[in-house]
């Protein structure tokens, strides 16, 4: 792997050549930067500005300083949504990472049919969240659902009211999420596995290493840098969980699956309180920021 310094140009000389160099670089980036500024950065700034205002969409925003943030910190509902989201992060992120790794190991084995298995595990990635939500609503259905039927055959009785009880609703959402998105991590780990030079394994095999030893002493250490990428990305995605919850439970039962993203959505588009919603958005952005700093350092991008 070439380090950053090697892939970049040599430092340009001072004067006209360096300015020309800068101009060329920005000319290349101009089309993207235009889209980025107009459709992402500007609306984001409006959003951050809105977080300091009282704004009901109809009519003009009114500056209120930090009042929205103050409101949020004292809002039981918001704190509860933070707590629920954290619970989801714990429930889903760990399996997403561990299972993603194990699945990558599995489909990297020289087995017949592994390409089909890869494709099958990856397929949920192309399904929209609405479709995933309704299909799992049906599979998890309490009295005629597929899962409870087969669990019943295995002796799980009475049937679990997956989406109807506060204790099981969030795990059910997590199961759905794992089915849906574990393939992203699997693919990334798989890519990492394929980047490990075959010679490393060959020489170890000649030394008589078992396949477990190969995994333990070559595969896992070689994949460590990827964790620095996968873990923060998975955690951030889990923090923003919304669609599955919105389709499957609407945040219930008893608010047990009510997450920050849904808080933002409802505050903005049901209660039309853009100010508070934007402030919650800013907070949702700041919390996993620490993860991103770790992530960027790990990737040596900054």
């Amino acid at each position: 792997m070439s380090s950053l310094a090697k892939t970049l140009d040599k430092p340009a000389e001072a004067g006209w050549a360096s300015i020309r160099n800068d101009l060329i670089a920005y000319a290349f980036m101009a089309p993207y930067l235009f889209l980025f500024i107009v459709f992402l950065l500007l609306p984001a700034f409006v959003g951050v500005y809105a977080s300091f205002t009282k704004w009901g969409i109809i009519g003009d925003p009114k500056w209120v300083g930090f009042r929205n943030y103050d409101k949020l910190i004292n809002s039981e509902l918001f704190l509860e949504s933070l707590q629920n989201t954290l619970y989801f992060v714990i429930l889903a992120a760990i399996p997403l990472i561990v299972l993603g790794f194990l699945l990558a190991l599995l489909v990297n084995q020289k087995l017949r049919g592994r390409n089909i298995a890869r494709a099958i595990v990856f397929l949920p990635h192309v399904v929209s969240v609405a479709a995933v939500g309704i299909v799992f609503q049906w599979i998890l259905e309490r009295s005629s659902g597929l899962l409870n039927y087969y669990l019943g055959l295995l002796g799980v009785n009475p049937p679990i009211n997956w989406l109807g009880e506060p204790e099981s609703a969030m795990p059910a959402i997590a199961i759905t999420t794992i089915w849906w998105t574990v393939n992203g991590n699997m693919i990334i780990y798989l890519a990492g596995l394929q980047d490990i030079p075959e010679e490393l394994y060959e020489s170890a095999r000649i030394d008589g290493a078992s396949s477990w030893q190969l995994t333990r002493h070559i595969t896992i250490p070689m994949l460590l840098p990827i964790n620095a990428f996968v873990i923060p990305l998975t955690v951030i995605a889990c923090w923003r969980v919304f669609g599955q919850v919105f389709v499957m439970t609407r945040g219930g039962p008893q608010g047990s699956t009510f997450t920050v993203a849904q808080f933002i959505y409802e505050t903005a588009f049901v209660n039309f309180n853009m100010g508070v919603a934007s402030a919650a958005g800013v907070i949702l952005m700041l919390i996993p920021l620490s993860f991103t700093v770790v992530q960027l350092r790990a990737m040596k991008v900054i």
Partner: peptide, 24 residues
């Protein structure tokens, strides 16, 4: 109306009916 009688997770009506029914 649409805030107080909402169907989403914020609704104090739904949450408390559910909590009482569940014995929480």
């Amino acid at each position: 109306y649409t805030s107080v009688f909402a169907f989403g997770g914020q609704s104090p009506i739904l949450r408390n009916i559910e909590a009482a029914q569940a014995g929480d």
